[in-house]
Every structure is written in structure tokens, then in C-alpha cells.
């Protein structure tokens, strides 16, 4: 058994064990940490397969960003269940294991039935990051744009879902602004001139008053 084969089996064992840890851990923090281990191991497997850019991107994106996001949410929320569901493992475990064995047996039969892949994997050439980037930005450029729009819409959706209105914030209401009439803002009053001596400017007949209504419905409404 070569060294690479040994590495493959070690990483596979760690990956499956950490996946079991994700689904079996009691506390969500333990699940999240097991998931981090699973991502790391999967990145190692991908690098073993020659996809070193994807492995590093997996570590950066998932371990660096998504898992921190998960841990933030775990810390923010009260993750304890109100009434402790004491799962009766003596009753629930055998059907689960049976379902798992049947599922895996079906998948394994399908995979091993094919005549493909009897020979060993080809040894990956060193460094395909350049070729990956060229394929992504040349042949798959429209798909890349669609994925960018998907990420943008996911961001907008996440903000729109969790955003709460601040009751103290002062903001404009366009419907109220549009519903206002000229009479609400401006009132023409007839009044006599109060000072007789300086009537050289002919403003005595009408006086434009802005605001200052006694009922408080001035310009500030």
C-alpha cells in the first residue's frame, strides 16, 4: 500500500468519524466543531486528488467564513430545547442503522456495478489553478455571473428577513409625502395693514404666512 493510499484511508476515516460527530453531538457547538474537522479533512482529500485550489478555497470559505457565521448564530440563539427530548435510543437506533445500511448497500451496489474505474487514479499534474481560472472566466463566464447574482440575492434576502425597523429612526414616508395638499402647507390670510406709515411697498392686501398656525399644522407636518 502506497503512502497516498494510506493517506486516503486515514482521511476517509477522519471524515466519516467527524460526520458522525456532527449528527450525534449533543451540543450544537460540538456539531459545528466536528463540521470544521470534516471540512478540513475534505480539503485534504481534494488536495490529494489534485484540486488544490478548491481545497484551499474550501478552507477559506467554509472554515473561515461560513463556520464562523454558524458559531455566531449558535452564540446568539438559545439553543437549548425547552422540553428535553430524551430520545429513546434503544428504540430509535436499530431502525436508523437499518435504514443507513440499506441506503449504503444500494448506493454501493450501484457504484460497484459499473465497469468504470478499475484502474488507479491518474497522478494529478501539479497546479491547475491557472487552468481552473481560465475555464471559469472564459467558458463559464455567464454561469459565473449568474452565481454572482445568486449570492447578491441571497445577501439581500438574508438582510430583508432579519431586518427590524428601529422605532426611533426618523425616515421619510413617501406615501404621506405624496398625499399632502397645497392647503396643508400654505395658507393665504386677508388682513389689514398694521403700520400705515410705510405703505410704499404695496403688500398690504395679502400676507403670505408660512407655518405658524396655532393648531400646530404648519410646515412641519
Amino acid at each position: 500500500m502506497s503512502f497516498l493510499a494510506l493517506l486516503f484511508y486515514i482521511f476517509s476515516a477522519i471524515l466519516l468519524a467527524s460526520a458522525l460527530g456532527v449528527i450525534a453531538a449533543r451540543h450544537p457547538v460540538h456539531s459545528a466543531l466536528s463540521l470544521v474537522l470534516a471540512f478540513f479533512t475534505m480539503a485534504a482529500l481534494w488536495i490529494l486528488l489534485g484540486a488544490e485550489f478548491l481545497g484551499l478555497a474550501l478552507i477559506i470559505i467554509y472554515v473561515g467564513a461560513v463556520m464562523v457565521f454558524f458559531l455566531f448564530v449558535i452564540m446568539m440563539l438559545d439553543t437549548r430545547h425547552p422540553e428535553k427530548i430524551k430520545a429513546n435510543w434503544r428504540v430509535t437506533l436499530p431502525p436508523l442503522v437499518l435504514i443507513g445500511i440499506i441506503m449504503f448497500a444500494e448506493l454501493a451496489m450501484l457504484i460497484m456495478h459499473g465497469s468504470h474505474a478499475r484502474e488507479a487514479m491518474p497522478v494529478p499534474e501539479a497546479g491547475n489553478t491557472l487552468a481552473l481560472g481560465q475555464a471559469m472566466f472564459d467558458r463559464y463566464i455567464y454561469s459565473l455571473e449568474v452565481v454572482a447574482i445568486l449570492l447578491l440575492s441571497a445577501m439581500v434576502a438574508a438582510i430583508a428577513l432579519t431586518h427590524r425597523k428601529n422605532p426611533l429612526a426618523k425616515r421619510q414616508d413617501p406615501s404621506k409625502q405624496m398625499a399632502v395638499k397645497a392647503e396643508d402647507r400654505l395658507r393665504l390670510v386677508k388682513m389689514t395693514a398694521e403700520r400705515e406709515e410705510d405703505n410704499e411697498s404695496d403688500v398690504s392686501s395679502g400676507n403670505v404666512s408660512l407655518g405658524n398656525k396655532p393648531d400646530g399644522k404648519g410646515i412641519s407636518s
Binding site: M1, A5, I111, A117
Partner: peptide
């Protein structure tokens, strides 16, 4: 030796 089948089984 790990082949494609091994990875698919994993």
C-alpha cells in the same frame, strides 16, 4: 489502492 470507486463509496 484508491480508485474512483473508493472515492464514490466514501
Amino acid at each position: 489502492e484508491p480508485t474512483l470507486t473508493h472515492y464514490l463509496l466514501l
